[in-house]
Design a protein around this nucleic acid. Structure first.
Lengths: 251, 251
DNA sequence: CGCGCGCGTTCCACTCACCGGTACGCTGTG
DNA sequence: CACAGCGTACCGGTGAGTGGAACGCGCGCG
């Protein structure tokens, strides 16, 4: 998984030992997760604290502010985020539902932004978090507009069944992707999380072929009417796309 | 500045060599900024690329997505951000001006969130970025509600004059802080950036004494009427404060 | 009570990962 | 064509990093 033969590898492994849900991990837990010897973990963790990448509390370690600052400088994410924010803002204001901005990384979706108000649906997604592609609207629309090789790889890989509604039949999935290509919209109906619906539209590259990112609106079954938001999502995505196209130097 | 005697220190120095404005740095530039020997930089940069903390392009290196993902997991920033987002959202919707959420780190302000629409004023702040305390509304209100020792340290330190309007007289500044304590609001009038006005309110701890964070609204001279937003900013800050107070385990 | 277990911390001698000087190839420039 | 600046590759010496072992603590259980 990680390269544990070098200091750097061990340090990164330590940082990555923190899952998206973990706030505070005791030394012992870090030892377990990384498989590194006690002394080593103790020392490296100490060094990381010194560099403000970790914070030490009475009950364990937590990721520290230095990481946040560095993370917010990551080039592509940051510029995408800054350019997109106003559009996401508008979209939220029109829908008052949870709005996501996501990009593809390997066979997964990475959420670059998530904004929502007080009434937002309880969703497992987090800014900076990952989800499988086959069971999210953003994932589907990104997959539909990805290179064929990527699509093939993902579709032929294992498609985890996350809820009873998850589509795991490659055929049916492929059909949905085709529809996404035609209509410029993809959907999720409780396929990743029970009770959640989602519509997504692609942010296309200048060539109009590949997707740079995708925007989605999510809401709870019951109140949420996906049809009501088709236009808004599509509008936000295309507006963002053309703004990105005007940018010099790309992302 | 950094500890360059250890691999880890060098690696961190490399990552921190990227300033808030830098997107792409060539190897040679990294060498210059870090002062490390060529071979060393080349090797460590390569390792960082391997760990997805750096990305290598034809024209240089850039901070990569792995950093973004790690950064968004930093405990305090993340939870603060998630809890605060709906309130910031509301505030933006009411004002349609740039909204900031900031915390204090040492003698500086770190912006945890910045949201704004298409009409937002051009401001140098960035999410994850830093600013001095004495010339920003958020900084002043955080300083006013900080421990006396912190206040003393900052006030006695060098107060950089960033614009002709920057308040550098410790006496006048202290007076403003007192007013901030009384009224629960602090202001900036083109003190950090020409053409920008700002109002900030503190997000107080349960004890009501120290400030956990601060929320501000920023706009351009001319259109922007700070008085019009006093109540909205204060309301957002106190609402966030009471929500945080209800949270188990604090931040 | 006291025994034992799990946790965090400290220590230290070995060794291998890291170091950084040197040398090479490429590209654009005067 | 010479040169300067950059990125890449190599390699022997060495000390930074390693991780096993031992210590002290607090807690829960017998």
């Amino acid at each position: 998984m990680e390269d544990l033969d070098t200091v750097l590898g061990k340090a990164v492994a330590l940082l990555r030992a923190f899952g998206p849900e973990d706030r505070l991990l005791p030394l012992a837990e870090l030892i377990r997760r990384t498989g590194l010897p006690k002394g080593t973990v103790h020392r490296i963790a100490g060094d990381l604290v010194h560099h403000r990448l970790l914070e030490k509390t009475a009950h364990g370690y937590r990721l520290a502010g230095g990481l946040f600052e560095l993370g917010m400088r990551a080039a592509t994410e940051r510029t995408l985020l800054e350019v997109a924010m106003p559009f996401l803002q508008d979209l939220y204001e029109r829908t008052h539902e949870t709005v996501h901005l996501g990009v593809r990384d390997g066979a997964e979706v990475v959420y670059v932004a998530k904004i929502g108000g007080h009434r937002q649906a309880r969703s497992p997604s987090r800014t900076g978090g990952r989800m499988p592609m086959h069971c999210t609207a953003i994932g589907k629309v990104l997959l539909a507009h990805a290179e064929p090789s990527v699509r093939a790889t993902v579709l032929s890989g294992p498609l985890e069944r996350r809820t009873p509604h998850t589509v795991v039949a490659p055929g049916l999935l492929e059909q949905q992707l085709e529809r996404a290509l035609e209509t410029g919209l993809a959907f999720e109906r409780e396929e990743s999380t029970p009770g959640l619906l989602c519509v997504a539209a692609p942010v296309l590259d200048t060539d109009g072929a590949t997707a740079l990112a995708a925007i989605s609106v999510t809401g709870p079954v019951g109140r949420f009417r996906p049809e009501a938001h088709h236009n808004a999502v599509r509008a936000a995505a295309t507006a963002l796309a053309s703004t990105l196209a005007r940018r010099p130097g790309g992302l």
